[in-house]
Amino acid sequence: MSKLSKLSLITLFFWIVKIVATTLGETAGDLLSMTLNVGCAVSSTILIGVFLANLVTRLLSKSCN
């Protein structure tokens, strides 16, 4: 596999993950702030907390899978 095709594959996967992550983030934000009526500040705090909990868990895990 040439370097160009590896780069193209990585770029493709990057954009797929970026679109999926953005869509899920927007959906979660809308669910909390509009559907459950908790407000923008509270929903942002909840989602930032979930993100930080995942980040800390990932950084403290023994394996890098």
Rank of each mutant, 00 (worst) to 15 (best):
residue 22 T to S: 12
residue 16 I to A: 03
residue 6 K to E: 10
residue 8 S to K: 11
residue 52 L to V: 06
residue 14 F to M: 03
residue 12 L to S: 10
residue 55 L to K: 07
residue 26 E to I: 10
residue 15 W to K: 00
residue 39 G to H: 02
residue 15 W to R: 00
residue 1 M to T: 12
residue 35 T to G: 05
residue 4 L to I: 13
residue 35 T to V: 12
residue 58 R to N: 10
residue 6 K to P: 01
residue 10 I to C: 11
residue 2 S to T: 14
residue 3 K to P: 05
residue 17 V to K: 10
residue 54 N to Y: 14
residue 50 V to Y: 09
residue 3 K to M: 05
residue 33 S to R: 01
residue 3 K to Q: 04
residue 8 S to W: 09
residue 9 L to H: 10
residue 31 L to D: 00
residue 13 F to N: 01
residue 56 V to E: 08
residue 2 S to E: 11
residue 13 F to H: 08
residue 50 V to W: 03
residue 52 L to M: 13
residue 48 I to H: 06
residue 13 F to W: 09
residue 1 M to A: 13
residue 33 S to G: 09
residue 45 T to G: 15
residue 12 L to D: 03
residue 15 W to I: 02
residue 4 L to Q: 13
residue 14 F to Y: 14
residue 63 S to E: 14
residue 8 S to N: 12
residue 18 K to C: 03
residue 48 I to N: 09
residue 10 I to M: 11
residue 5 S to E: 11
residue 38 V to Y: 09
residue 51 F to Q: 06
residue 23 T to H: 04
residue 48 I to S: 15
residue 44 S to R: 07
residue 64 C to S: 15
residue 27 T to H: 00
residue 10 I to W: 08
residue 61 S to D: 15
residue 56 V to Q: 08
residue 11 T to P: 01
residue 61 S to A: 15
residue 31 L to I: 00
residue 35 T to P: 01
residue 58 R to Q: 10
residue 5 S to L: 10
residue 35 T to F: 07
residue 47 L to C: 08
residue 49 G to M: 02
residue 37 N to W: 05
residue 49 G to A: 12
residue 11 T to A: 15
residue 47 L to T: 01
residue 54 N to L: 13
residue 60 L to I: 08
residue 46 I to P: 05
residue 12 L to Q: 06
residue 5 S to F: 10
residue 55 L to E: 11
residue 20 V to T: 14
residue 30 D to Y: 09
residue 43 S to R: 02
residue 8 S to I: 09
residue 1 M to R: 07
residue 45 T to Y: 12
residue 9 L to W: 05
residue 52 L to N: 10
residue 5 S to M: 10
residue 4 L to P: 09
residue 38 V to P: 01
residue 41 A to K: 07
residue 37 N to Q: 09
residue 20 V to M: 05
residue 23 T to P: 00
residue 24 L to N: 05
residue 34 M to F: 13
residue 36 L to Q: 01
residue 52 L to H: 02
residue 63 S to A: 10
residue 36 L to I: 04
residue 44 S to D: 14
residue 65 N to F: 07
residue 57 T to H: 11
residue 42 V to L: 15
residue 36 L to P: 00
residue 4 L to V: 12
residue 16 I to D: 01
residue 21 A to R: 00
